[in-house]
Design a protein around this nucleic acid. Structure first.
Lengths: 169, 169
DNA sequence: CATATATGTCAACATCACTGTCGTATCTTC
DNA sequence: GAAGATACGACAGTGATGTTGACATATATG
């Protein structure tokens, strides 16, 4: 680890605070994804598969368009990843009951099992961090993170208590 | 945005809390990188270049090994990105004054300018989030984030006040 | 002198993303 | 019922970022 040498950018404490935030986010995300990535590599999948499996498990019956809005990737990128997951039996599709153009997505047992194993690693990390930081800290964490998210998606991830039931688009 | 349908995984509030953390991190990181990514794309660079320029600006005189330890990517991946930045005049190298095998890295004026523009977007986002969340929340945010980071790197990113001066490896 | 370290480089490859275009089924509206 | 919008899938091509493994060179250290 390098020293903070003379010449480095810390003109104001303010700037230092902001850079601290930036770096915390970088390091936390780096380490947060490390373990699941290693597990995924062993079965020939990648981080993108985890994201899809996660959100399909989170919102059973979610359709492709909703998934695209969450992931903010292109249809083609999702199509490849989703196709692999369906082909390998992690995700099942069924026609939308109201709008038959839609494909409603669900985890199979195999998929639910994978999701559980992958996410468990991240849940453990959060549980440890919450425990170490204390209950008050958790609230502050949530508030800052909420406000880092683009406003239009802020309601998407909210405490279950305070969340207004989101509507389908 | 999909509804929380029956069948979704929320056996305990505990699990819901952990999933909230996971999702906050996903959405925040997604939005945090969005704007710089678009700026970088216009000049033919990518997110990896931003990371390198950021940490070279942060630790002027950093060498390759230290950068590798921060980024946790392979030498070859860094080499390509770093090579491009040097070739295009964003980063200057000079021989290590003590150990002449080392290449000490520094931003050129052009590089410092790029770093400023890229990071400014993220600084603004953090400033807004800190302001909206309040001072107490910021402290909790820092504490949780610190504890999400692998223990061996926790000291690397610490409040300037509380940080023990890190040693070179 | 022998060995370890810091760095660079080459070749080959995988993953994840992008753009642009087109096709088909289905819903909605007039 | 025709016209247009929407949901989804698919093809072709491209690029950024990452990987492994092997090897080379300069320098430091015992």
């Amino acid at each position: 680890m390098p020293e903070l040498r003379p010449g480095m950018q810390h003109l104001f404490l303010r700037d230092e605070d902001l850079r601290l935030g930036i770096e915390l986010l970088f390091y936390a995300y780096r380490d947060f994804t490390g373990e699941p990535d290693r597990m995924l590599a062993q079965i020939g999948l990648g981080r993108a598969h985890h994201r899809v499996v996660y959100f399909v498990g989170r919102y059973p019956g979610i359709n492709v368009g909703e998934l695209l809005a969450i992931l903010r990737i292109t249809k083609q990128s999702l199509s490849r990843v989703l196709g692999e997951l369906v082909r390998e039996g992690y995700i099942a599709q069924k026609q939308g009951p109201v709008d038959r153009r839609q494909r409603r997505l669900e985890l199979t047992e195999k998929g639910a099992d994978l999701e559980r194993r992958l996410t468990e690693s991240q849940r453990r990390r959060f549980a440890a961090a919450y425990r170490a930081a204390g209950a008050g800290a958790v609230d502050g964490f949530k508030r800052v993170m909420q406000n880092l998210i683009d406003e239009r998606d802020r309601a998407k991830v909210a405490d279950i208590d305070t969340a207004k039931p989101p509507k389908r688009p």
